[in-house]
Design a binder for these strands. Sequence first.
DNA 1: TAGATTGTTAATCGATTAACAATC
DNA 2: TAGATTGTTAATCGATTAACAATC
Lengths: 209, 209
Amino acid sequence: MSEKVSPSVIRRLPRYHRFLKELLQSNIQRISSRELSEKMRLTASQIRQDFNCFGEFGQQGYGYNVELLYTEIGRILGLEDAKTMIQIGVGNLGKAIVSHLDFSSCGFSLIGLFDQDPKLIGRKIAKLTIQDTTTLAAFCRQHHPTAAVLCIPEEAAQQLSKTLVESGVQCFWNFSHYDLALHYDDILVENVHITDSLMTLGYLASNPT
Amino acid sequence: MSEKVSPSVIRRLPRYHRFLKELLQSNIQRISSRELSEKMRLTASQIRQDFNCFGEFGQQGYGYNVELLYTEIGRILGLEDAKTMIQIGVGNLGKAIVSHLDFSSCGFSLIGLFDQDPKLIGRKIAKLTIQDTTTLAAFCRQHHPTAAVLCIPEEAAQQLSKTLVESGVQCFWNFSHYDLALHYDDILVENVHITDSLMTLGYLASNPT
DNA sequence: TAGATTGTTAATCGATTAACAATC
DNA sequence: TAGATTGTTAATCGATTAACAATC
């Protein structure tokens, strides 16, 4: 499919996917790189370069077939093979994520919810019963989840990520400030530092250009 | 202070701030760019370049004073001048944000909560009473908030952002998929596309290197 | 065929890394 | 002073943009 795709291209894929979905919903069947560039505020050159990392999806003199491109990018993103995922932590943030987010449309299938709070254990959210974190290792041995979402504080993340890594979980979507990637090799970590985003906005607001 | 700081440097500031805070809490008083580079997995060169965008905070032969550097970066990020902010939407995600996040440590002061759900209006979270979105314009006229967090669906974001922009709100922390920046000029928008982050992880998991 | 638009190469721009003189 | 480490310039690397031949 491709040799080596640069991180910046990869980070643009979900946005392309979103825009194409919208076009599709508006019944637009084809689009040129120039038209798309105006909608997305990118250059047409960049769009063509980006798509060409993965194949030749366009047609000279015509442009791109929206549906085909949408499907292709979905396939590239791996949305079609549902990777199993468990979520650790169902506090405020965790609850928002599990009830707000459609995992399956992102290429994941949520198969387990864990928390250490006795008040939460046994409750049901999104068809899943919250389990005790002490049973995490046993669960992983049995179900081999590919990925884990960490919606827990830094200290808990430090402890539980050890258990998870040792149990074979290799991908982490990490909302805690504990950066696993600095402590383990051969794992995939996507950190979501939501406060970094707010601070960046704050910087821009405080330092007008 | 500085002529023009590149976006990539700005995006690294919150992370520096976090690492320095941790060092400070461990009672480490000074650090060299090399030591910090090992902890953060950056090059020492980059660290020195980054800091030098804002001034000369180090001392040859010694390194950097951690407390001073921490304070300076906080100041650069504008953490000291609390910018007023209102939050629109107190559903699952909104509730998580308002109860989970310390706005003041990010340079903002939350002064209003709004929702359109009658069941939520009047309730109190984090010392604030949830108000009706129909009163938004009036509130803005009176209090002139600098920024707004949008924790609402795309359609609501489209409508309410119009009201907000017309009422003089200039900064947006946007959790919806409606990108205001494409529709208004002279506003500051920080988009948080949480699903993009998950899809990126999914891509990396599905396309191993 | 003529017009349009891609795929792709070349040129430019910006960001990161390396090197080293300045200096504490 | 000698050693260490910064601030800063120069070299490298990568990503974006421009240009254009290929082709639908």
